[in-house]
Deep mutational scan, measured.
Amino acid sequence: MDTYKLILNGKTLKGETTTEAVDAATAEKVFKHYANEHGVHGHWTYDPETKTFTSTE
């Protein structure tokens, strides 16, 4: 398992979190669920070199 990072740049919520996942697709599902639960619906990007997802509203 690898550690993946999420950076949230929402209108009402900003911050970072991490998750352990078997691959990027699994981490993306976890992070999108997390963002949706916190009302963040933004544009998603992923940097495979740093294993970092960013959601920007």
Rank of each mutant, 00 (worst) to 15 (best):
T26G: 08
T18S: 10
L6N: 02
E57L: 04
K5Y: 15
V40K: 02
T45L: 06
L8K: 00
H33N: 13
H43L: 14
E57I: 05
A27W: 02
T56Y: 08
F53S: 01
K29D: 08
E16W: 14
E20R: 13
L13C: 15
V30I: 15
E16I: 13
A21I: 02
A27F: 01
I7M: 05
Y34S: 01
T17V: 15
L6Q: 02
D2I: 13
G10S: 08
T45C: 08
L8S: 02
A21H: 01
T17Y: 15
E37Y: 09
T19S: 04
K29P: 01
T54D: 03
Y34K: 02
W44P: 00
A25I: 11
E57H: 05
P48H: 08
S55T: 15
Y4I: 04
Y34T: 02
K11H: 13
G10M: 07
T12E: 10
E20T: 12
M1H: 09
S55D: 06
D47V: 05
T54Y: 13
K32Q: 11
H38G: 04
K5V: 10
T3V: 12
H41S: 11
G15K: 14
T3K: 09
Y46W: 02
T12M: 12
V30R: 09
T56S: 09
H43A: 13
E28T: 02
K14T: 11
K51F: 07
D23N: 09
K5L: 07
K5A: 05
W44M: 10
G42A: 05
V40F: 15
L13H: 14
Y4F: 09
H38R: 13
G10W: 14
G15L: 15
D47I: 05
G15T: 15
T26M: 11
H43Q: 14
E49P: 08
L8H: 02
T18V: 08
E37T: 13
K14N: 09
V22L: 12
E49N: 11
I7L: 06
A25T: 10
E28V: 04
T12R: 10
V30T: 11
K11Q: 12
K14G: 06
K11V: 14
L13E: 08
E57F: 06
E20M: 14
D23G: 03
L6I: 03
V30N: 06
T19V: 14
M1N: 08
T17C: 15
T52W: 02
K51L: 10
